[in-house]
């Protein structure tokens, strides 16, 4: 394979991995902490992308969209959680899947009513337009920005999860929620914060993805399946798992489409199948312990 072409595809893989990561981390930690399977996580991503479109339509810059849309999407996500999703918190994954799939349909239709069926575009800021030279390859600046943003957020989340009190509370809750409660920790409050941060990051993903993939009804479903696979492969509830899973699926998807175009989807499911056979709880799951007695 031509080395320039290879480098370009590696960068494409990285860029896609970062978008997957922004969605996967919220889904994974929310599941790890509360055992809640929130498939409507992608709806927040889509909502933020549409909000970004509106902001830029109204004359706002891309940066203003990047600032405002994730916050709005996060607030709406949290509102949705308290108004609706919380009702099935104790009722198992089937009830959660049914309800959140319902939310996906409702969210898509609502956005359709407001914005119509046609895809919308969000343009990138002027100084990120065009390409720049990366080791002899002309590569779109905006995609490099996505990679840089993803890496920066991984760093921020690492510090937040591993070095702060809130991070310790989250890890404790993922390990063993009941024991955390016996220490006087209000896990419901920690969870609300995690849910809001997760929705914010999904919203950020939506805004960042908008200029590359466009904004259209159903953009959430196409990505949430991949994100679920990321979480299964990486392992639930851990930052390392979300990073590793995102990279594996990002690369498998990109290179699958190049090397075996007819079987591109199969590459991803192959990675998942191998992970499930050899590491059924994922590559880097949170270290929860089994409760005896």
């Amino acid at each position: 394979m031509d080395p320039n072409f290879l480098l370009e595809q590696v960068l494409n893989s990285l860029q896609f991995s970062m978008l997957l990561f922004l969605l996967a981390i919220g889904l994974s930690v929310v599941f790890g902490l509360m055992d809640y399977l929130n498939l409507a996580h992608g709806t927040v991503y889509m909502l933020a992308a549409y909000l970004a479109f509106s902001v830029t339509q109204a004359g706002g810059s891309f940066w203003m969209a990047l600032l405002l849309a994730p916050i709005a999407a996060s607030a709406i996500g949290l509102l949705l959680y308290y108004a609706l999703l919380k009702r099935v918190e104790q009722q198992g994954h089937l009830a959660q899947v049914l309800l959140t799939v319902g939310v996906i349909y409702m969210g898509t239709d609502l956005l359709r009513i407001v914005y119509g069926d046609l895809p919308k575009g969000v343009s990138v800021p002027a100084f990120l337009e065009g390409a720049t030279n990366v080791l002899g390859v002309a590569y779109p600046k905006y995609r490099l920005f996505i990679i840089a943003l993803g890496l920066a957020l991984m760093g921020v989340l690492y510090v937040l999860l591993e070095r702060t009190r809130l991070g310790a509370l989250v890890r404790a809750g993922v390990d063993d929620r009941d024991t955390a409660e016996t220490l006087g920790i209000d896990i419901a409050k920690v969870f609300a914060l995690v849910f809001a941060i997760g929705a914010y990051l999904a919203g950020l993903g939506g805004v960042v993805a908008a200029p590359v993939f466009g904004v259209y009804p159903g953009m959430d479903v196409s990505v949430i399946i991949l994100v679920l696979i990321v979480v299964v492969v990486g392992g639930l509830g851990s930052l390392g798992g979300a990073i590793l899973g995102s990279l594996l699926i990002g690369f498998a998807d990109t290179f699958g489409k190049i090397l075996l175009p007819q079987f591109a989807m199969m590459m991803i499911y192959l990675v998942m199948a191998l992970a499930l056979i050899f590491r059924p709880s994922g590559l880097l799951p949170a270290r929860r312990f089994s409760q005896a007695g």
Binding site: A168, R171, A172, V174, D175, D176, T179, R287, Q291
Partner: peptide, 14 residues
């Protein structure tokens, strides 16, 4: 019920 993902000190601090 020691949290395995937390250090000894974090187990106390939280």
């Amino acid at each position: 019920a020691i949290f395995p993902s937390l250090s000894v000190e974090e187990n106390l601090r939280i």
